[in-house]
């Protein structure tokens, strides 16, 4: 899976630096860490559970807990994977818990296992309106494999044109044009 390259100073990850600072009570570092990891962790969370609301709520819960007990947090080498583990555990616990309470959420829990759902399936599944679902999957069907992949990298994983070009061994110009053409097609189906 392609993900956003993590920011570094020399060889040291910014995430580790922010983590350390957060443990000493630095509120700004805490917020920077949150902002820096938000997208990557959300995308990861959506693989655990396809409800964006559950993911963002759980993520906030985790960070609020981190801040509450920042003085007692352990030293962590791999901040992102550490947080991923917590996020996964929390979401599964949450949907497991809700399952007993709420029949609707339990439908989500059924596929809450960590099988990677393809991006184009995920974004269709999330839509609540059947008409939108239909139009969206039609539109996605009209895109080439390459176009779909680039749309995912750009809008879902939040990469820059430069990163996308680098990852796909193409020029920035090509990346840009491919995405533009894909958006045009999508718009024709999604917006009437």
């Amino acid at each position: 899976m392609n993900k956003k390259p993590s920011p570094t100073i020399g060889d040291i990850s910014m995430y580790s630096l922010w983590w350390e600072a957060m443990c000493t009570g630095d509120r700004k570092a805490f917020l920077d860490l949150y902002k820096g990891l938000y997208r990557n962790l959300s995308v990861f969370g959506l693989r655990v559970c396809t409800d964006p609301d559950v993911v963002s709520d759980t993520l906030n819960q985790i960070f609020l807990e981190l801040w509450e007990k920042h003085e007692f947090l352990p030293r962590v080498d791999q901040v992102e994977s550490y947080l991923r583990t917590i996020l996964k555990r929390k979401i599964l616990k949450q949907i497991g818990h809700q399952q007993k309470l709420d029949r609707v959420i339990s439908a989500i829990a059924k596929d809450g296992e960590l099988i990677e759902i393809p991006y184009e399936e995920l974004i269709v599944k999330i839509q609540s309106d059947d008409l939108v679902k239909r139009r969206l999957s039609q539109a996605l069907g009209k895109l080439s494999l390459q176009q779909r992949k680039l749309i995912q990298l750009r809008f879902y994983e939040g990469l820059s044109y430069e990163d996308i070009a680098r990852l796909n061994a193409m020029t920035v110009r090509t990346a840009y044009n491919t995405i533009y053409e894909a958006l045009k097609t999508l718009r024709k189906y999604l917006i009437n």
Partner: peptide, 20 residues
């Protein structure tokens, strides 16, 4: 709207940060 659909409805960061 198109952005919202393509980003899988991930809540915008500023809103999350406001909550935090």
């Amino acid at each position: 709207y198109m952005y919202q659909v393509l980003s899988a409805n991930i809540t915008p960061l500023n809103i999350q940060v406001n909550k935090i």
